[in-house]
């Protein structure tokens, strides 16, 4: 128990840090699925965001510019997904899979061009942590929650905003109706196609931001495959979090907690194989889906293509 208490600050710190990229990506996916688009291409979009964010940040020395350009790149990739699924009515799973193959490959190509044979090029700057005076000194949670990068704070601030958008905004209601019953939405003068594209833009931007967080705040060294399945975990957190911003926050933190536990256990039991502990968050995801993966929940028209003049 003492050991656990001792490592608790570390666990919590890793929890919050690990939760942010997942939170950003899953907030993006909430927008996407609320408009009826299951985007399993999150992983690929995150990979693009991670690489472009890193490369632009390192080239210009301006990390925020890196983030913005990374998000734009994510939007571009996700609009490809949007064009295929919304305009061409292609299958969402197949298109998402294609994005997952294409986008990391582009990132790897860029990485080879950018880093080349000089490993020093793979190390970039990190955003500085901003401690909130007073709050940061609270035992256990202070350092974890109130000594983050500005980007981390912004991610958490997004949660109530997204929640409020869906609950209290006229457009939020329309947005939801597109994922529930697009035919009905269309008869009420809601532009279904526009909402779906907007969802693609938001999802691309947020998922890419999640990826960029990894390279700009999480770890200074860029490696290929840095996203490590976090896009898929974000997909699971959306289901686990019941398609709501607040739920997704909880699910992301829970995943982050298991990530933190993994780090703490690795330090504690150095004789055991590392991979065994690294497995924990992923195993937890599967277990969570076993209990919360009901197909009956969630937006009714989720994953279904929408043809306007369907007969």
């Amino acid at each position: 128990m003492d050991v656990f208490l001792m490592s608790l600050p570390t666990i919590l710190k890793t929890m919050v840090m690990g939760a942010v990229p997942i939170l950003l990506a899953s907030l993006g996916e909430v927008f996407s699925e609320r408009a009826g688009l299951v985007n399993i291409g999150l992983e690929g979009v995150m990979a693009i965001g991670a690489f472009v964010g890193f490369a632009i940040g390192k080239m210009t020395g301006n990390l925020w510019l890196g983030l913005v350009v990374g998000m734009l790149a994510g939007i571009a990739v996700n609009l490809l997904y949007g064009f295929c699924t919304v305009t061409l009515c292609a299958d969402q799973v197949v298109t998402g899979m294609a994005i997952n193959i294409l986008a990391p490959a582009i990132a790897l190509f860029g990485y080879n061009l950018f880093v080349g044979s000089n490993p020093a090029n793979a190390t970039g700057d990190q955003m500085a942590s901003l401690a909130i005076p007073g709050l940061a000194n609270i035992p256990f949670v202070g350092n974890a929650f109130f000594n983050q990068t500005l980007m981390g704070y912004l991610a958490f601030v997004l949660v109530p905003l997204v929640w409020y958008f869906f609950k209290n905004f006229r457009f939020g209601l329309s947005f939801r109706s597109v994922g529930e019953n697009p035919q009905a939405a269309e008869t009420l003068g809601i532009n279904v196609v526009r909402v779906k594209y907007l969802a693609c833009v938001l999802c691309g931007a947020l998922a890419a931001a999640g990826g960029a967080f990894l390279t700009l705040c999480y770890t200074p060294i860029y490696t290929d495959g840095i996203v490590m399945g976090r896009g898929f975990i974000a997909l699971a957190t959306v289901i686990f979090g019941r398609w709501s911003a607040v739920g997704v926050l909880g699910a992301s933190l829970l995943f982050g907690f298991f990530d933190g536990l993994n780090v703490a256990l690795q330090a504690q039991f150095q004789a055991a194989p590392v991979m065994f502990f690294k497995m924990i968050p992923y195993a937890f995801t599967i277990v969570a889906l076993l209990f919360f993966g009901s197909k009956h929940a969630g937006p009714k028209a989720n994953g279904k293509p929408y043809f306007r003049e369907m007969r």
């Binding site: 209290n168 905004f169 006229r170 457009f171 209601l173 329309s174 939801r176 109706s177 529930e180 019953n181 035919q183 009905a184 939405a185 008869t187 009420l188 003068g189 809601i190 937006p299 009714k300």
Partner: peptide, 30 residues
């Protein structure tokens, strides 16, 4: 039009369904 197969959002309340997509208010909030 009242369609034969209702164009309603099952997951929303009666009131939400009625006002859905209506643009009479200037405010962006419901």
């Amino acid at each position: 039009m009242v369609h034969q197969h209702f164009m309603l959002i099952d997951d929303m309340t009666g009131l939400e369904n009625i006002i859905l997509g209506d643009k009479r208010h200037k405010s962006a909030r419901l």
